[in-house]
Computed example of a mutant assay.
Amino acid sequence: MLIDTHTHLNARQFDEDRQEVIERAIQNGISRIVNVGFNRETIPSSIQLAEQYEFIYSTVGWHPTDAVDMTEEDLAWIESLCSHPKVVAIGEIGLDYYWDTSPKDVQHRVFREQIRLARKVGKPIVIHNRDAHQDIVKILQEEKASEVGGVMHCFSGSWETAKQCLDMNFYISFGGPITYKNAKQPKEVLAQVPMDRLLIETDAPYLTPHPFRGKRNETGYVRLVAEAAAEIKGIPLENLAHVTTVNAITLFGIR
């Protein structure tokens, strides 16, 4: 059995066939799904999905590209949702220096506020990091994120950065890019990540794995990520599936 630890099944790209996508995921051996809510629009729909399906769980958080829109009321709202039985983490949160939609200082403040909230409520955090490796690590260290740990979602950094995150009680998660021929660094990093800290994901509908690259990603394709990860690790798919499932259950506290 497999767990997709990061997907966006509530995205508009699935409005026409969401139920079929979920059924295909089940057919591909996915036993549990962690769906991500990251702003005013996606948090309610993510929780709604988790309430509708026993095997779907939700995160709640504020994405860095939307940081400029987050208010004190939004932060209080996120805190109130953390008591929901299907909410398993705060995220995705972090920094994004690629899309110029929120000033860096605002992103930093919103990121820090949510790490503090995670420590307050005792939830792990799901980290979004795009072109901001050094600042991500610095803020995680300064805000004592190791107290709650979490996951570096769709990791794209170096092994040095990965080691710093591992030292702070974080899991390292990989998605579709490890199936790409030219994705040298993610494969090299995955090969070195300890098995007990490894997770897999799709980030659907984005980052579609080979051979479907260029088309819409979906949760069932986490099996392709698992197959690639098992090959990189040099272990049977069954072993990789078992360990990453146990890791996800441990991190998110899901049944």
Rank of each mutant, 00 (worst) to 15 (best):
F111H: 02
N28T: 02
E73L: 08
M70E: 09
E218H: 08
E142Y: 04
I3V: 13
R109H: 11
F55V: 04
A118C: 05
F252A: 08
Q114D: 07
T42R: 13
M70K: 11
S80P: 02
T7W: 07
W62L: 07
H63C: 08
D131K: 15
D96S: 07
N10H: 08
E41W: 07
L81C: 10
E188T: 14
P103Y: 01
V151M: 15
D15V: 09
Q27A: 14
W99K: 15
E79G: 10
T179N: 06
K181A: 05
R32F: 14
H128Y: 09
E201P: 01
G220K: 13
C154P: 03
V34T: 00
V151F: 15
I136E: 03
R109D: 03
S102Q: 00
G37K: 07
N182C: 14
R197V: 00
E79V: 06
T208A: 13
W99M: 07
F212T: 09
H242S: 06
N28E: 15
N28R: 10
L81E: 00
D131Q: 01
Q107I: 00
W159L: 09
C154Q: 03
I47Q: 09
V151R: 11
V193H: 13
T244L: 08
R24N: 12
Q27G: 01
F38Y: 11
G149C: 10
L117V: 02
V34Y: 05
A145V: 12
V21R: 13
F38N: 00
Y53K: 08
Q134W: 00
G157R: 07
A118F: 11
K215G: 02
T101Q: 13
L251S: 08
V60K: 02
A67L: 08
L81G: 00
E188R: 13
F212I: 06
A132I: 10
M152W: 10
A67G: 04
V110C: 13
A183P: 05
T219E: 03
A230V: 12
F155T: 08
S173D: 15
I30W: 13
I254S: 03
R24H: 15
A76V: 08
K215W: 09
N129C: 04
C154L: 08
E160C: 08
A89W: 03
N247E: 03
N217D: 11
H6D: 03
E72Y: 05
E160R: 12
V193R: 09
T244G: 11
I93A: 03
H8W: 14
E23A: 13
Y97A: 02
V222P: 01
V243L: 10
R116P: 06
R32M: 12
E238A: 14
P177C: 13
A145T: 14
V34K: 01
G37N: 09
E92G: 02
C82N: 11
L190C: 12
D131H: 06
F170Y: 13
I249M: 15
N182W: 09
T202D: 02
V189W: 03
T179H: 07
T5F: 05
E72N: 13
S45E: 05
H108I: 02
A132V: 15
F111G: 02
A89M: 12
F155C: 05
D4M: 06
G175S: 01
R109C: 12
V222W: 07
P186Y: 04
G150P: 05
A76S: 15
T65W: 05
P211A: 15
F38I: 00
K163H: 09
M168H: 15
